[in-house]
Amino acid sequence: MNQIIGKKRIEDLEVTGNKWLNEDYFVLTLRSEEILPDIRAGQFTQVKVEGSPETFLRRPISFYDVHPSSREIRLLIRKAGAGTKRLSALNKGEKVNMIYPLGRPFSLLEGNRFLLVGGGVGLAPLYLLGKELHRAGKEIVFLFGFRSAGQLFDLSQFKDLGELYLTTEDGSKGEKGLVTGHPVMEQGWDAIYTCGPEPMMKVIAAVAAEKGVPCEASLETLMGCGFGACLCCAVETVHGMQRACVEGPVFNTKELLW
């Protein structure tokens, strides 16, 4: 049964697609019976994983794409452990219980030229963000880092929104090295948005701070509830401990003490 009261929902969504992009990443498409609520880039959903005894808590997953007209959402997921493995095995027609939309989204920062830096599965929220910024008429450039070409998948939908630069750690595709060493980082940007491994985001935040460029990062903090009740997801900020699930997961990096 679906309960739709107020802004956050608990709802059973139907799987309408589940497709591997490579060995580790897959895209799960789900359809709501209801009109979708307003979902913004950087927000996430708490997914209940049935049929995986090891998976006790829900799993937080960012929105990768949203299609209000078909009432579909897409999640880009990396197979990390038992929970995400179970999600990868979902078949069309199965139901998935989700709580959504959760968290503070990316904000539309001032300016016209934006750099979106993603590492690994951190690409996920940057696609929806790219769509939002593109729609607002902004110029955007993506800079993505992967471990190797094996992690790559078809990125053409990103390329429809803006220029795209790639790095791989082993040099098997794009520039060799880390995103943080890519020359595009050095261009003048009005703001930088990032999502990926924390060490990567820290370096990007430091570069942004040095150049005086506003920067927002989406953190992947462990979560108990995902909707503000347990205080398990605390992040140290200049305003004290804040909840990654309510005051985040997107933070302005100058507020973070990390």
Partner: peptide, 23 residues
């Protein structure tokens, strides 16, 4: 009170461990 540093939780078989502290 600010509570304890992160990580403050771990998932365990059929349960979880928390160390939120009295935030």
């Amino acid at each position: 009170r600010e509570g304890n540093p992160s990580p403050r939780m771990a998932e365990t078989p059929m349960g979880m461990i928390n160390s939120v502290g009295l935030q």
